[in-house]
Design a protein around this nucleic acid. Structure first.
Lengths: 240, 240
DNA sequence: AAATTAGAATGGTAAGACCATCAATATGAG
DNA sequence: CTCATATTGATGGTCTTACCATTCTAATTT
């Protein structure tokens, strides 16, 4: 059974981290509340200020607190968010040098699940939102190749909205990471290679149509084509 | 375009973090190599040792380095690992931002994709491995309720093997963090509530059979039932 | 040759000082 | 009186210096 941490008992600041983290997770201090100042914490824990600060850096990186400057500032307990999850996944992708092919494959799977789920959970307001974004994308599409970036932004918004419709924070986080990592690549050479704007734009419209008709499998298929079309640009690129 | 970080230009240590992180991610320093000592880094960056140390705490928490004591020790660049990812998910769960229902739903989607993919990519050796694990699980199952923990371990091994068969590092990573987080919860109260070992065991056998017959959709269905059975234990638990 | 000891490099902690920021308050101008 | 401005003090950010704890290396001893 893994999931134990090495019992490095040297390192006082880790003990401080643990105590403060427990206080936060157990609800003894609630989001929005401020921890005592560094100088007060120094008294409480009977350690030096440097040690306190190292502990605060760890807690900050864990996303448990954030620091505000000036009078009345200090370490404020944060609401938990998927940001840290997103950041660590991002680091993993970059550190492991995950290829675009693997990312695209992963994306097809996950976003397929997302869209199938979204079909069932979308409220009329959600559909409206998606149609609004689609219209916007359409207008950028009509304006021609100078508006590729704006189109891509709208496209990303569309997908992120789908993630949100699932009401599942896991999909919310994963959806964001996928796009953060993919979009940056796309933007680079889409301007060089061009992109078939019209087809991509039609994809969105077809997707919304499938959703309105409550046909999850059709939506999944359209999405897969959509993503594959995107990824195909990479195929061409790889040859050069 | 979102996903910018606040440009807090105060905070020198963040600049240090960024520079070292870039060096690691770009491969200028490779896993296993040691960064210069704190006292040397102090010279390089022209900052105090305390500032260097705060930067190292952040990098350590990000999972990019680990610290070794004594002569020849220092900050060693780590191999990318899913540990931080798993920890951040754990924090979200404990903060109640992600529920077991969310996780189970996510798991059904992702592992469904995994198993469908595994059907197509599994080598004869992979199938053998899965059968070996299934046999082991079966034996624990036969030994009765005292071997629930071992059965759960085997079950997890089964799923992790599936993830690996995809040969896609994204699925590998996501599969692992899901199970690392789920298993610890299950173990807790499965011993109190009991579990229908036989059905779960049969699931594995049926899954392998579907894979050998190259029927991805059947495999997907079996898997969904399997996970749903697991998750149902939580449903009961919630009422008490 | 093996065991022991000493040395040195390195991270861990402490204490004290000063600067930068920012909210609350006091002060001044209109 | 009202609004703008200046002052003040609490707080985080950084620097310096010092010493301790750990651990590898090598010299010393047995």
């Amino acid at each position: 059974m893994p999931m134990f941490k090495p019992a490095k008992q040297n390192r006082i600041f880790e003990d401080v981290v643990e105590q403060i983290q427990d206080a936060i997770l157990s609800g003894q201090v609630k989001p929005g509340e401020t921890l005592p100042s560094e100088r007060e914490l120094r008294e409480v824990f009977k350690v030096s200020r440097g040690t306190i600060r190292e502990a605060l850096r760890v807690l900050e990186q864990k996303g448990l607190i954030e620091i505000k400057l000036g009078v009345g500032g200090g370490a404020i307990v944060k609401e938990a968010s998927v940001d840290v999850l997103a950041e660590s996944l991002d680091l993993l992708i970059r550190h492991r040098k995950v290829s675009m092919e693997h990312l695209a494959e992963f994306r097809i799977g996950v976003e397929g699940d997302i869209v199938a789920m979204a079909v069932e959970r979308a409220t009329p307001q959600d559909i409206e939102e998606l149609e609004r974004i689609t219209k916007m994308a359409q207008s950028y599409c009509d304006k021609g190749p100078d508006y590729v970036r704006q189109f891509l932004e709208a496209d990303m918004q569309f997908h992120l909205t789908l993630s949100r419709i699932t009401k599942n924070p896991m999909y919310d986080a994963i959806g964001r990471i996928i796009h953060e990592n993919i979009l940056s690549y796309y933007k680079d050479f889409i301007e060089r290679k061009g992109i078939k704007l019209k087809e991509n734009c039609d994809d969105l419209a077809r997707l919304v149509a499938a959703m309105k008709a409550k046909r999850p499998e059709e939506a999944r298929t359209v999405l897969k084509e959509h993503i594959t079309r995107y990824a195909s640009i990479f195929e061409e690129k790889k040859d050069q």
